[in-house]
Design a protein around this nucleic acid. Structure first.
Lengths: 229, 229
DNA sequence: TTGACTTAGTGTAATGATAACACTATACTA
DNA sequence: TAGTATAGTGTTATCATTACACTAAGTCAA
């Protein structure tokens, strides 16, 4: 019964670091493991790659099964292959990272009888396997990438204020930005378009809402840009 | 005999894109396959990951076995997992790229009874599997990375002229650079140190030889730098 | 209804980085 | 020793980045 091979083969999995943004900080989605090892512990969502699906497909499937998230930005990160990263047997995992906007995608906590929750990226529980290493790599990648590709926008709702956009960059880059310079730069890139709406339910002057210029956004997404701000 | 698993498992391999530089252009090392499928065709060096070695170890081992190259710059690139990328069975491969200087590392053609040779990156034979895709990804990565990390230096001999360094950047970025601006920028970064030697056996005024400032080089390698030239 | 509060929204000047550009110096070769 | 090939060197104009502070508009509470 089962499948036999002449040489021993590592198991192959995917693990996904899902980032989201709220009013305070950058969040990461973790799920509570229901199986040994580390049952009950919070860990990155992920699972085995099936024989008839690509790596990207495996990552999307696991994400949907474990968190209900679908149709989100997802990109391969790095492959982790230390010999003893899993205590049971040799497991190689392909790491992914994903970006979602909290407004658009309700976190359907446990499609899979698993608990899913958001944790602040700077205040995480201890993670099993080498998940802290994977998370670190994803965070580094996000920080690096945001400087030359407009991916950060994936973390915002369809319409947003320039303040929210600035906050996004401040949280990811972990430093304060000058309001005027930020606006000047963003607007000069022609990447956002003014809408006729303004924000609602705020206890102060309401800000104008913007949306992405999809055309220009896609072009910049391919070419890259320079967002040294 | 062999090893059995409950679920079918993909085979796991590594493939390495080795870049080098000569007087004309950027080269890639290919080996002639001795096994089916595609026996006799030129392909990227690579092979199966053993159960007791990390991915990096597998890449280094295969590189040494197939090309004799060792102790060179090597970095993981991307993992390729299309379902039908290998006609025999499901094989997932972790792509690597490596940089060598031709002077320091003789290409010991066939430690493994295989033929190894350098090909210009812009004039390659047709490659089996998805090796052209892997190569493309490696080339893109090299072009991108050279702008913010001083990795290009790995392609040069210990002592080199500023002309050689400029040539390296011109070949990788595929455009001409201004000599004065290039020198000004490189020297202002303090990344190279003048030696007391000059180049030999040239039919014109000999240029001064430089070497890397290892300290500064290592620091920049971690921090990154901005080489928009 | 008014005053206090909170965030939105806006421009300019100084500084630093990049880009464009051409000639003299030195060594070898025939 | 004349020719040729590359080495080596500064300045100026343009553009991008940074630093910086006030008025406008709306909400809230007294």
């Amino acid at each position: 019964m089962g499948y036999s091979y002449e040489y021993e083969r590592p198991a192959l999995t995917v693990d996904i670091v899902v980032f989201a943004l709220d009013d305070d900080d950058l969040k990461v989605m973790l799920i509570q493991r229901d199986l040994a090892p580390f049952a009950g512990q919070w860990a990155l969502p992920g699972g085995f790659v099936r024989i008839d699906e690509t790596l990207d497909e495996a990552a999307r499937r696991e994400l949907q099964e474990e968190t209900g998230l679908k149709d989100i930005f997802l990109e391969q990160l790095y492959t982790f292959g230390d010999v003893n990263r899993d205590p049971r047997e040799r497991v190689v995992t392909v790491g992914y990272y994903a970006l979602v906007n909290l407004a658009g995608h309700a976190v359907q906590a446990s499609a899979d009888a698993r608990n899913a929750a958001w944790f602040p990226v700077n205040d995480l529980p201890s993670l099993p396997f080498d998940h802290d290493q994977i998370l670190q790599a994803a965070h580094d990648r996000l920080r690096g990438k945001v400087r030359y590709q407009p991916i950060g926008f994936e973390l915002l709702p369809e319409k947003f204020t320039l303040r929210q956009l600035q906050h996004l960059y401040e949280v990811i880059l972990d430093r304060e930005l000058d309001k005027r310079n930020f606006r000047k730069k963003v607007l000069s890139m022609d990447i956002v378009k003014e809408t006729s709406d303004i924000e609602k339910d705020v206890a102060h002057r309401a800000a104008r809402l913007y949306r992405f210029d999809k055309r220009r956004y896609d072009r910049l997404m391919k070419q890259g840009f320079n967002f040294e701000i």
